[in-house]
Amino acid sequence: MMTRRARVDSMKPSTPGPTRTAPPRMPDNFPGRGNYLGYITFGLCGFVLYAVGFLMLRTIWALGSGEREWDRLIEGFQNPVYILFHVFCVISLTWFALRFFGLFPKTQPPNIGRFKRPPDIFFLVALNGGFLAVSLLVIAVLSGVLL
């Protein structure tokens, strides 16, 4: 059951005790067990954010390089590999967003100066509802329905 070692100086006192100690171990089954898995997957979404951020940078760069460059890029997005990649990103980042919204309310202190913290349900409705509204708005704008 015991898993790999933690750093050998983890939780070590500044002056060693009188007896020899065995080195500390990492939490059991890290990162496979329930909660750790969600946390690590959430962290791994950082790589997806990197990819999407730089992809969007490339998209805007193409837009600044003229019509031909832009059209070539948009056409390129029809490549099945790109489509699969985008679908993967949509799914992982939607999950990322929902986990983030779920963990968000308790990060807010009961009061900041004179401002009182609204109840959890406010955050959950505002974040999830806002996510839905903003998503519909973005879809409407990018598909030419709005603006």
Binding site: S10, P13, S14, G17, P23, P27, D28
Partner: peptide, 23 residues
């Protein structure tokens, strides 16, 4: 299965070093 707390140096059996925590 019972093991000593993870992330702590092990003094003996199920007993871990607390001094680092106290500091």
């Amino acid at each position: 299965e019972v093991a000593p707390l993870a992330n702590f140096p092990i003094i003996r059996d199920l007993v871990v070093e607390l001094e680092g925590f106290m500091e």
